[in-house]
């Protein structure tokens, strides 16, 4: 079975660990526990009949991505950059963060994820679309589970395509 390393990164409190837990164990907790260092877990997904083992690294949140230790990015196949749609400070420097991440992973997959959409309505998202420096790839809610599975399956599918 093919194994791939995937990194979950972004500012603190954006819901990286909640996305991670929702995807891995289909559970959500209201408690906020800050991640110290990194947490690694694994999930085997099935994409069009092919099994893929995702080794997911949930990295402690950093306000700026250049603060994340470079060695965490080594050997990574995909980066999931998460921001909180309700907190401007988590996406106002999105362009700089994404530029840095693409420099760290020039040939890898980078997905921009807007999380916590359960807290806002459609008109808010429409307005956000016009203000955000870089367009997002997918909007999710770790709380309701909306688009969480899709996010990881989409990453998995791109990884498998890359592999063929």
């Amino acid at each position: 079975m093919i194994s791939k390393k995937v990194i979950l990164t972004g500012s603190f409190g954006v819901g990286k660990t909640s996305l991670f837990e929702q995807f891995l164990y289909s559970k959500f907790s209201q408690k906020y526990l800050t991640t110290i260092g990194v947490k690694v877990d694994k999930k085997v997904i099935n994409v069009n009949g092919k099994e893929l083992s995702l080794i997911i690294w949930d990295i402690a949140g950093e306000v700026k991505q250049d603060k994340v230790p470079n060695s965490y990015f080594l050997g990574t196949s995909a980066i999931i950059y998460v921001f909180d749609v309700t907190r401007k400070s988590t996406y106002e420097e999105l362009d700089q963060d994404i530029t840095h991440l693409k420099k760290m992973l020039p040939n890898g997959i980078t997905a921009i994820v807007g999380n916590k959409i359960d807290l806002v309505d459609e008109s808010f998202l429409q307005e956000l679309k016009g203000n955000i420096p870089v367009p997002w790839d997918i909007l999710t809610s770790a709380k309701t589970g909306e688009n969480v599975e899709e996010l990881f399956l989409n990453i998995g599918s791109q990884l498998l395509n890359q592999n063929t």
Partner: peptide, 8 residues
């Protein structure tokens, strides 16, 4: 273990 990725 693979050094960079941590893959087993």
């Amino acid at each position: 273990i693979q050094k960079n990725s941590g893959l087993l």
